[in-house]
């Protein structure tokens, strides 16, 4: 059987499949439905320094082969995470990773510093690419200066594995990737959602409360594969690929484009056990094609 164990910037994973932030809660919500120990890493909900109520309803619109969301980083803040959620998730036998968001470099750094104190959290994923909050979020992710400023601030406050999540809503994602690599990121993950919009023509109104939202699901996969391919060619740090993965074949595309691991987001809504099925499917595909290890196909394109 092919070896699909993976190490990303020091993180040891049973397989290269993780669950994407905002789509898998804190893992607990899925505990009845999938064996969490068989998931390479669980990236929990976006967490900010202070509590956030998020945007108004409606926050979701189904679109062709995907969905738009404008949740807007609803969460109870990092103190609540440390006090109430961490005790519940710290013994889940997977890499429990916190997705960190903010509206200033200082915010990001302060939030990361709190997470740094938590023994059982081996990594953070820095979200500099959320399209659904007015200030911050994506604003940092769309310029090389903004991106490196945030990453530098966090790097000083955080000494474990630092993954930086990139936005596809930019002219050159490879430039942004290089700037966060230079600023001290250990790995990059991409893509976050693509900014989109949908209109209810009968009501003559946008279908989302804040008009625009982030597109995810199979509809974005070709864009995501292209971004991963460009970034993998531009940086030396590991690349984590995501965007529209629904099965093992989709995942293999990302590996060939240069990803060392993948995340699954919207797919969890369709099949709560998708992550484990995709991991098994990757292993089967490698066997069928006589590869001994997942590493043999990473970046072959």
């Amino acid at each position: 059987m092919a070896d699909i164990r993976t190490t990303i910037a020091g993180l040891q994973m049973v397989n290269p499949v993780m669950t994407a932030s905002g789509t898998f809660g804190y893992g607990l919500e899925f505990a009845d439905l999938v064996d969490l120990s068989q998931i390479g890493g669980i990236i929990m909900k976006g967490t900010t320094l202070n509590p956030r109520e998020g945007n108004d309803y409606p926050r979701m619109a189904e679109t062709a082969c995907g969905m738009l969301n404008c949740v807007g980083l609803q969460n109870k803040g990092v103190d609540y995470f440390c006090g109430h959620i961490y005790p519940q998730v710290k013994d889940i036998p997977s890499n429990m990773i916190v997705n960190v968001s903010g509206s200033s470099p200082e915010d990001y750094a302060a939030c990361a510093a709190r997470i740094n104190e938590l023994d059982k959290i081996p990594a953070i994923e820095l979200n500099i690419s959320c399209p659904n909050v007015k200030q911050g979020g994506m604003a940092f992710g769309v310029t090389t200066e903004g991106a490196s400023q945030v990453v530098r601030a966090v790097r000083e406050a955080y000494d474990k594995t630092l993954i930086v999540k990139l936005s596809p809503n930019v002219t050159s994602i490879a430039d942004i990737a290089r700037s966060v690599e230079d600023a001290g990121a250990d790995a990059v993950s991409l893509i976050n959602t693509l900014m989109g919009m949908a209109i209810d023509i009968e009501k003559r109104k946008p279908r989302l409360s804040i008009n625009t939202g982030g597109l995810s699901g199979p509809a974005v996969k070709p864009v995501a594969v292209r971004c991963v391919w460009q970034v993998a060619k531009a940086v030396k740090i590991p690349v984590i690929g995501l965007g529209g993965i629904m099965n093992a074949e989709d995942a293999i595309e990302f590996f060939m484009a240069g990803a060392s691991a993948i995340e699954i987001g919207t797919g969890n809504f369709i099949d709560p056990a998708i992550s484990v099925k995709v991991a098994q499917g990757i292993s089967d595909w490698l066997d069928r094609h006589h590869y001994e290890s997942i590493h043999d196909i990473v970046g072959i394109i």
Binding site: T23, G25, Y57, P58, R59, M60, P272
Partner: peptide, 22 residues
């Protein structure tokens, strides 16, 4: 009957405003 995506309390798409927030 709010619009739902996950049905599991994971995605926060289906929120209703309550006295305790969303």
């Amino acid at each position: 009957e709010n619009l739902m995506a996950c049905g599991l309390g994971a995605c926060l798409c289906c929120v209703e405003k309550t006295v305790k927030g969303n």
